Computed example of a mutant assay.
Amino acid sequence: MKGNIITTEKCMVCGAILKHNDRRHGLFCPNHPQISCVKVFVVRFGRHIQRQFNNYDKAAQFLNGLRFKTGEGSFDIKDYASDKPYSFRVLSEKYLKRKANLKSFKEKKRHITVAQEYFYDSNVKYITGADIEDYLFDIKGISEKTRANYASALSDFFKWVLKRQIINVLPPFPEITYELGYRTITDMKTQQAIIIKVRELSEDRNPKIWTGIDLLATYVNLRPGDLLKIKEKDIDLEHGVITIHYPTKAKNKIKTVRLLPEHIELIRDLKNQFPALPELKFFRHHGGVRSQKPNTPFGPKYFKIWWDNACKELGVQDLDLYGGTRHTSTTEIARQAGTMSAREATAHETNKAFDRYCQFQNDTAFKMAGLLKKKKTDGKVLDFPQKAGKN
């Protein structure tokens, strides 16, 4: 049979090389059968595989495994290469390089780095569903939503490995259930009061602060991160359109926002007041504050800071920027024009995501309630008894 177990140990009596004896499960001197190998067992399989063990059983198990895989046709020399090309560590680094231009790369890298520490040099071909479940539920101090994000990142990695034909089937992933919370929303009067307060607080420093927040509250398909992507050249005032670019490695996605006349004029005035080169970000600092260099873009939390300051001034509690602008406005659209119109306005692709934005019963449920009412009363409206009161 292919392969053998050898050793560097020699007979202490005659100096002969110890030979492998399958039947006796060890390596023995051909001249003195009572003398056997003690601690150096080397499996040699073909020209490229040589692995040392400290006891015979481990060496024999490894050799028999190689023979079995050769017999069934699943033997792959790369599984045993010294640079471990199929290890989780090596492949995940290649995977991250392929994903480096994604918008979500930082989060993806964070999740994969944690998995690298756990699986390290494990061969991806032999990572099972049980291994994945143990890994995911060994991560302490995270919510189930975050745990699901870790699972999603790992699943995407294994799909990439599958496409490279390193594995033949995806390992099963455990089901992770979670319920996303709903953001606090407010009424339109309070929303406008907050925006006015933001304007009062920030107008002298930079009128683009309250302008950005007003855009978020008006155009519900906009996100705070979208505003930070807008360059001067992305604003077409002639046609009243803002184009937001989402660069990825594979393609260039865009989002367009049609502006109302009042916002066209507002942005026109701001462009005249703060002229700039086409490539500069529109939402940027304009100087006057020591810690802020002119023409540097707003940070990711800049609008939130001013929103929170305005809420504090007005005594409004537990209302974040997202809930007070986009979620509140989406719910109001649903009240005024129906949930289908609200969903089209937000451009959500799934009902689950939209339901968290629109805290208002959908049109179908409301219409069905009316049909049931009509059926129960045979077309007649019931007169509900009034509460007894003092005359």
Rank of each mutant, 00 (worst) to 15 (best):
A276D: 04
H263P: 03
Y86D: 07
S291D: 02
L227H: 09
E133F: 03
R290I: 10
L96T: 14
K106I: 15
G287R: 01
I185G: 02
D131I: 11
A60V: 00
W160K: 07
I209W: 15
K233S: 15
Y302S: 10
I264S: 04
P385Y: 08
D308L: 05
K281P: 00
K249Q: 10
I254P: 01
D57S: 09
S104F: 11
T184H: 08
R284L: 04
F41P: 08
P275H: 06
D320C: 13
T256W: 01
K233F: 13
G287V: 01
F105D: 11
E262L: 10
D187E: 02
H48N: 05
A388K: 12
E107P: 00
E9K: 15
N31W: 08
E175K: 14
L215R: 07
I112F: 15
Y219S: 07
W306S: 00
P294Y: 01
E179L: 06
R199F: 04
L102C: 10
I209E: 14
E349S: 08
L371Q: 02
I195Q: 00
D121H: 14
A337E: 06
H239D: 04
V316C: 03
Q50F: 06
V90F: 03
E175I: 12
G26D: 02
A337W: 08
K375Y: 09
L321I: 08
L259E: 06
P294A: 02
Q317M: 05
F157H: 07
R223Q: 12
A81M: 14
D214Q: 14
N31M: 10
T218V: 03
I195Y: 00
I49Q: 03
G141E: 05
K10P: 09
P294R: 02
R47N: 14
Q165E: 09
N221D: 13
P300L: 04
K97M: 10
R183N: 03
T256D: 06
I17R: 13
Q192W: 06
I235Q: 03
R89G: 02
Y246C: 04
T128W: 15
R284H: 05
N123I: 07
K208M: 11
R268G: 01
P297W: 01
N309R: 12
V198Q: 11
Y95A: 09
D378T: 12
E203A: 09
K251P: 01
I235M: 06
P174H: 04
L260P: 00
I166T: 07
R164S: 13
N391V: 14
N252W: 02
L201E: 13
K125Q: 04
R98V: 06
L96K: 14
H48L: 05
